[in-house]
Nucleic acid binder design. Structure first.
Length: 489
RNA sequence: GGCGCGUUCGUCUAGUGGCUUAGGACGCCGCCCUCUCAAGGCGGAGAUCACGGGUUCGAAUCCCGUACGCGCUACCA
């Protein structure tokens, strides 16, 4: 072990999308691998034929790539220990299961689902503390087994769990954990369709792929004794185990679809930045021990350690994610945001229109401190892209008074005299009007803002006017004056 | 039911026997800045550290018990 390289894997079953809990598991594996100059492997655990979902693997891979969790070996890129899709490794599992049988550490079981069901019911009726298979087929004679096999009676292969054994293992996160083998069922290893169960496939592959650290969700803690038994039965060295705390709904149940979005794709489509999602999810169950909350991937790699992972579940709090998203967005350069904004625009109702990079950059600069998402650069300030169709009702009542049309008219003529006005020119013009009318600048700014943007909030007045440009400003003042008359009539 | 794991402000968490009148962050509230909204700055409310016993001069921190929550208990992963 001293010289062995760290090798970890993310081993999802392809359910159709990448769960955010899965994203965090993948992230911790990734961080641990990168931190230790190890390898990060993607392995698809598709051993349940009933759960086959078209395109699921492709989705999973796309989500992982989007998040920046690039693996060193995997189904699409191969590697020295492939194939990385369990459904392509069936012979391997069967070979190892047979090996166990030859050593009496596993056995064929021909029991029908009906008998199993009846057994379960009987055990329940007797209120036995634990429902387990009764090892009926363990006691079949050699000839009976031969005969059943020859007849082609459906069979499974079960692990032969010895009674009265103490099974113990160490977990980086949970410390020492102990189980009594009397509580452990003779787990099915190979199903009647010839596919392995998770337990066998997982252990065999982790060994064959030379996985050194098994970092997975806490839901696997209870099955770890079965895995430990398998490692021991094969005479293989156990990996280091690290069982991660679960991600929870606000009501503290396991994070589920019912109570919100759980797919990484959902968050991506809602406009969350991958940097923010990664940052957020990394902090759900781990921290460096200091007050730092804002991280980029390379800093996470540098600081990460399994020892500092928490034991208890963490609620997925959208408000904090939103804050992190805004933080990450603000930290981006205007040029970086520009390309994100252009992509967003090409998917918006404004996709046919042309907006120069110059103008877009001005919008970005003006709005950067006021947005949480890239799409807010469009929908929080539509007035940059089109003249207002209507005016905020509350703001009309507050800002548009009897003398507003006159004042706007006065501003309009003043603006008309400007030649290629800068932001400052607009400001001087407005100041001049305010002085002439003997009123505060605010008295002009608020009605003007409403006239020109339809809203009562936004970036600084003169930034707004400058970005819109003289001609557009004048046009909007004119139509606002008309609207005031009809509104106030 | 059985087995396992967990339990510090609403949420994410710091804390590994004295530095703690339990610190930070999100959210909330207030003030400042200010043409609005943000951002930023300052401040506030918010946790008898689940509960009960021990150990100790001293416990959120160690031990035991209880409660509650979650996970597993499939030829699902």
């Amino acid at each position: 072990m001293i010289n062995s390289q760290v090798r970890v894997r993310f081993a999802p079953s392809p359910t159709g999308y990448l769960h955010v809990g899965g994203l965090r598991t993948a992230l911790y594996n990734y961080l641990f691998a990168r931190k230790n100059n190890g390898k990060f492997i993607l392995r698809i655990e598709d051993t349940d034929r009933n759960r086959y979902v078209e395109g699921a693997v492709e989705n999973l891979i796309a989500a992982l790539h989007w998040a920046g969790l690039n693996y060193d070996e995997g189904p699409d890129i191969g590697g020295p220990f492939g194939p990385y899709m369990q459904s392509h490794r069936l012979e391997i599992y069967n070979r190892y299961a047979e090996e166990l049988i030859s050593q009496d550490k596993a056995y064929y079981c021909f029991c029908t689902p009906e008998r199993l069901e009846a057994l379960r019911q009987e055990q329940q009726r007797q209120k036995l503390p634990q429902a387990k298979y009764d090892k009926h087929c363990l006691h079949l004679s050699k000839s009976e087994i031969e005969e059943n096999l020859l007849k082609g009676i459906p069979k499974v292969i079960r692990l032969n769990v010895e009674l009265n054994q103490k099974i113990e293992f160490d977990d980086v996160i949970r410390d020492h954990v102990e189980f009594d083998s009397n509580n452990i069922d003779d787990q099915v290893l190979i199903k009647s369709d010839g596919y392995p169960t998770y337990h066998l496939a997982n252990v065999v592959d982790d060994h064959l792929m030379q996985i050194t650290h098994v970092i997975r969700g806490e839901e696997w803690l209870s099955s770890t004794p079965k895995h430990v038994l398998l490692y021991d039965a094969f005479g293989w060295e156990r990996p280091v185990f690290a069982h991660l705390p679960l991600l929870l709904n606000p009501d503290r149940s396991k994070l589920s679809k019912r109570q919100g979005d759980v797919a990484v794709e959902d968050y991506r489509d809602k406009g969350y930045l991958k940097e923010a999602l990664i940052n957020f999810v990394a902090l759900l169950g781990w921290n460096a021990g200091d007050d730092k909350e804002f991280y980029y991937m390379d800093e996470l790699i540098e600081k990460f350690s399994l020892e500092r992972v928490n034991k208890s579940g963490a609620v997925f709090d959208l408000q904090k994610l939103n804050w992190l998203n805004a933080e990450h967005l603000r930290k981006k350069s205007d040029e970086e945001i520009l390309s994100l904004l252009k992509k967003e625009l090409s998917n918006s109702e404004y996709k046919g229109q042309f907006y120069s990079d110059e103008k877009l950059l001005l919008i970005i600069h003006a709005m950067k401190e006021r947005v949480n998402f890239v799409k807010d650069f469009i929908y929080n300030c539509r007035y940059f892209y089109e003249a207002p169709m209507e005016y905020e009702q509350k703001a009309i009542e507050k800002n548009w008074k009897e003398d507003t049309p006159q004042q706007l008219l006065r501003l309009k003529t003043e603006f008309e005299n400007l030649v290629n006005p800068s932001k400052e020119d607009f400001e001087h013009a407005l100041t001049k009007v305010a002085e002439e009318l003997k009123i505060g600048k605010g008295k002009l700014i608020h009605p003007l803002r409403l006239a020109v943007s339809g809203q009562s909030t936004g970036p600084g007045m003169f930034d707004l006017l400058f970005i819109l440009g003289k001609d557009e400003v004048i046009k909007r003042i004119e139509s606002a004056i008309k609207n005031i008359k009809s509104v106030k009539a």
